[in-house]
Amino acid sequence: MKMKLAALALAFAAALPAQAALTNNAADIGNAIVVDFEAYDGFFTTGPEAVAPGVIFTGDADSQLGGFIANLGNNGIWGAGNHFAATGNIGELRFTFAELTAGVGALVNHFAMNDFPFSVVVSAYGDNNQIIETYTLAVSTGEASENEGLFLGITRDVADIRSISFKGNGVVVNNLAVAAPVPEPETYAMLLAGLGLIGMAARRRT
Rank of each mutant, 00 (worst) to 15 (best):
V55C: 01
G79H: 09
A201V: 12
G76V: 10
L107E: 14
L192H: 13
R204F: 13
A15L: 14
A80C: 06
A124H: 11
L150Y: 10
A7W: 09
A26N: 03
G54K: 05
V158S: 14
T134L: 03
A20N: 06
G168C: 02
L93M: 13
I33D: 07
D115I: 11
F68S: 10
A138L: 05
S123W: 06
A50S: 06
T101V: 14
S165F: 01
P183H: 04
L16V: 08
N89C: 05
V34T: 13
A32R: 00
A202L: 15
D41T: 03
N129M: 14
F68Y: 07
G66T: 00
G42T: 04
N128F: 14
M3E: 11
I131M: 10
M1D: 11
G153A: 11
A15Y: 06
V173S: 04
A106Y: 08
I56L: 09
I198H: 06
T45N: 02
M200Y: 13
V121I: 14
D60N: 06
E184I: 04
F95Y: 15
L93G: 04
A13D: 07
L10F: 12
K167E: 07
K2F: 12
G88Q: 12
D160G: 12
A7Q: 13
T134N: 10
D157R: 12
R203P: 00
I29L: 03
S163E: 08
V121M: 13
A180K: 08
A138R: 15
F97H: 08
N74E: 13
T134G: 09
Y135P: 00
V120F: 02
D36I: 00
T134I: 01
K2S: 10
G73M: 01
G73E: 03
F116D: 09
P48S: 03
G42F: 03
F37E: 02
F151T: 07
A80N: 14
L150P: 04
E184V: 07
G170K: 06
I198T: 09
I164R: 08
G149C: 01
Y40T: 00
L191Q: 12
I33W: 01
N24E: 10
G47I: 05
F37V: 02
G81Y: 08
V34C: 02
I164C: 07
F95P: 11
R204D: 06
D127E: 15
D157E: 09
D62A: 10
P48H: 04
N175M: 01
I29E: 00
M190S: 10
A138T: 13
A9T: 09
H110N: 12
A9P: 01
E133Q: 15
L65T: 01
G170I: 07
N109G: 03
E148D: 14
N174E: 13
A102F: 04
E38R: 03
G168E: 02
G42L: 04
A193V: 11
T141H: 01
A193Q: 13
K167P: 00
S119A: 15
N175I: 00
V122S: 00
L150A: 14
A179T: 05
